[in-house]
Every structure is written in structure tokens, then in C-alpha cells.
Design a protein around this nucleic acid. Structure first.
Lengths: 213, 213
DNA sequence: CCTACCGATCGGTAGG
DNA sequence: CCTACCGATCGGTAGG
């Protein structure tokens, strides 16, 4: 239990740190960050340990002084990100806010994570299929639980008459995937800035496209 | 030009056919369909030609009597899907409907394609990064153009006062990614049926989550 | 952290 | 469509 909390805090801290700090913190941290960038760019399966070693600036064999295997790298990335989101949704759940505000908060947290912690969040979202057992099942369970919590908040909002009558799991699906669209924004040199992007996304998701005149 | 039109029609026809028909049509068709399923499940890079051959029921070497290379398979899948969506958006563009109706149509077309033609659409959306030049650049250009056309329809809706004042490219980003969320629905044995899913998605995207009482 | 190297597997070809 | 096989590259280890 203590170990879980420590791992969670470590994850929060390392991902909250500025990039330079995170990199300098340890060689392992540098490896994880370089790996995130390469896994996002080329995919986990298409990234070789030799590719990764080159971007870190050492020989492939030397990587194994810091990590046990290629899969361990993916595990570290995926579970760090999962911990961050789990911690946040628990805080939001526990707060005494209106449902629509809770959703607004979750939305903005997701968007900011996607912008500030881009490579890791992206990899966690798209490459987790390459995890091996028992990590794969563990991750899938966490994912399912997160969505259930999110859906419960929406259901609650419907019951309180703050949110229109929709299928909550479908709404969660849409929201989570919509946010992953920031990937394209991130890559396209952003015509609009991060704040505008966030406000636009929240507005579209919460109030929709149609103008109610 | 004639070749382009033929390829386009062939794509439309083969993807419009029932699965049994498509499979029987040719061994190449069977290979493409099995490849779509495997590329979706494991990713392009993690799928070997030996895996694919086994699922088709022949030896790996025999695949090369029907296709030229592993990459050619990905090209066939990606460009078939791209053609289908390009053809549709051109038809929608040319129609004389209200902007909000055009968007509704595009949304429903995407959702239906994602449901009926799941493996291929998914692969085209997530695995195109593994295309090689010049196909990669060609595909990216088609993608960019599609989004521009979609954004132009939204801009038009804003100008006509049918759509609220939002950043159109951001809206396109959200919409396209939101729809790819159907992947999760598809895999999760659907608590709600396809029609309900479609209506829920359209309602959420067009009118938002918040209830305007 | 490196050199040297392992067995396994990859995409693909030759020849029938 | 198969058997037999190619060179290249993979993740990872031994030993220093």
C-alpha cells in the first residue's frame, strides 16, 4: 500500500516537473522520456532498442543497466499516466461541485495533460495494447474503472437535471476520444493558442455546435 | 484520370459489399480483410506476414503471389477508405442543405462507416503512419484536404448563423476523434444498439451535454 | 557503459 | 501454392 502511494507520488512529481528537471533527474527518466517520444512517433513495435539507445546517446546494450526490458519502459509510461488521471478523478468525485462543473474540470484536466504531457499521455492512450500480462489486464481494468467513474458523474448530472438525457457511457467515449484529437493540434503548429483551444473544446462539448438563438 | 475513377469505384464497391461477397470475390480481397483485422488488433508493425498467412490459411511465401509487399496491403486499406470518405464529403458539399444538416450527414456517415466497415476504417485512421513515401505524403495531403472541407462547412454554418461561434478546425478535430471512440463501443459488446449510439452521438455533438431548460 | 555476440524472427525471393 | 532459404534486424546477455 505504501509502495503504491509512493509510486503514485513519484509519478505525479516526475510528470509535474519541467522537462529539463525530469530529464536530469536520472538516466532512467531520460530513457523513459525519449522512449515516449519515439513510441508516439513510430509506435512501440516499430521502435527498436537500438533506435532508442541512439536517441539517448548510448549503446543498445547499455540501456539494460537502467531498465529490464523494452516492455518495462511501456509499463512505466502507461501506469504513470494512469495514476495521474486516477488521482485527479478521485479528487473531482470527492468535491462538492455541480455535475456540469465536475465535467468541466475533468475536461480541462484532460486537455492540459494532453498539452503539457503530450508524449506520455499519447503513448498511454494508443500503445497500451502492447503491454504484456499481467500488466495488460491491470491497465484495462484501470481504464474501465476510470470510465465508469466518469459515466457515474454524468449519470448524476442527468438525475440532477443539469445534463440532457443521453447515454452516459457513450458521452464518456466521445469526450475521451475528442480530447485525444489534440494530438493533431499539437502536431500542426497551432493556429490558436492553448487557452483558446481549451475554451473552444469545452464549449463545443458542453454546449454543442448548434446555435440556440 | 480514368484509372483514379476506376480505383475509386472499385474501393466503393468492395467496401459496400457484404463480407462474404467481399471475401469470396478474390484471394486478394480475403488477404486485405484478414490483414485489416490483424492490423487493427495488433498494429501494423507487430503483425508478421507469417501471422497473416496463417489466418488466411496459406504459407507466408504464398502471400506474395497476390500482393507485392506488406506495405502494399496497408496502402490498399488506407486509400480505399480515404476514397470512400472523399466521395461522400464531395456529395455533401455539393448538396443544397443547411450547414447543420450537412454536418449531421457527415457525422452519421462517419458513424456508420465506423460500425459497418470497422476494421478498415480503424486501420486507415490509426496505422497510416506506417505508409512509405510517396504514399505517406499523398495520404496526409488527402487527410488535410478532407479536414479543410469539413471546416469550411462549419465556417459556412457560422456565417449563416446556424452554428455557434467556435474555431472550426478545432471542431473538426473533436468531431473526427469523437467518432473514432466507437472503437471502444464496438469492442464492448454494445449495451445500446447501433441506432441509439448514432442518435446519442449526433445529439451530444450538435447540442452538447448541458441541458438548456 | 562498451564490445562482442546469441538465438529468434523478420520481410521477401528462387525455383519448382 | 509450397519448400527451402536469404540477409537483416530484433530484444537481450556475457563479460569486462
Amino acid at each position: 500500500m505504501i509502495i503504491v502511494i509512493r509510486a503514485l507520488l513519484a509519478g505525479l512529481l516526475s510528470l509535474g516537473m519541467a522537462k529539463s528537471q525530469r530529464k536530469k533527474a536520472s538516466k532512467k527518466g531520460l530513457i523513459l522520456h525519449k522512449a515516449s517520444a519515439m513510441f508516439r512517433e513510430k509506435g512501440f513495435a516499430a521502435t527498436s532498442m537500438r533506435d532508442l539507445a541512439e536517441s539517448v546517446g548510448i549503446e543498445a546494450a547499455s540501456l539494460y543497466n537502467h531498465i529490464r526490458s523494452k516492455n518495462e519502459i511501456l509499463e512505466a509510461i502507461c501506469f504513470d499516466v494512469a495514476n495521474i488521471f486516477n488521482t485527479n478523478i478521485e479528487a473531482v468525485e470527492a468535491s462538492n461541485q455541480k455535475s456540469i462543473t465536475k465535467i468541466d474540470n475533468l475536461l480541462r484536466f484532460h486537455i492540459r495533460q494532453m498539452i503539457e504531457n503530450y508524449e506520455e499521455v499519447y503513448v498511454s492512450d494508443r500503445e497500451w495494447k502492447h503491454l504484456e500480462e499481467p500488466y495488460l489486464s491491470n491497465f484495462q481494468t484501470q481504464r474501465r474503472n476510470y470510465r465508469k467513474k466518469f459515466a457515474a458523474i454524468i449519470e448524476d448530472g442527468i438525475a440532477r437535471n443539469e445534463i440532457r438525457k443521453i447515454d452516459a457511457p457513450t458521452a464518456v467515449l466521445i469526450i475521451l476520444h475528442a480530447i485525444s484529437g489534440i494530438e493533431s493540434w499539437h502536431r500542426s503548429k497551432a493556429k490558436i493558442n492553448a487557452e483558446e483551444l481549451e475554451n473552444n473544446m469545452v464549449m463545443i462539448m458542453i454546449d454543442g455546435l448548434r446555435k440556440h438563438s
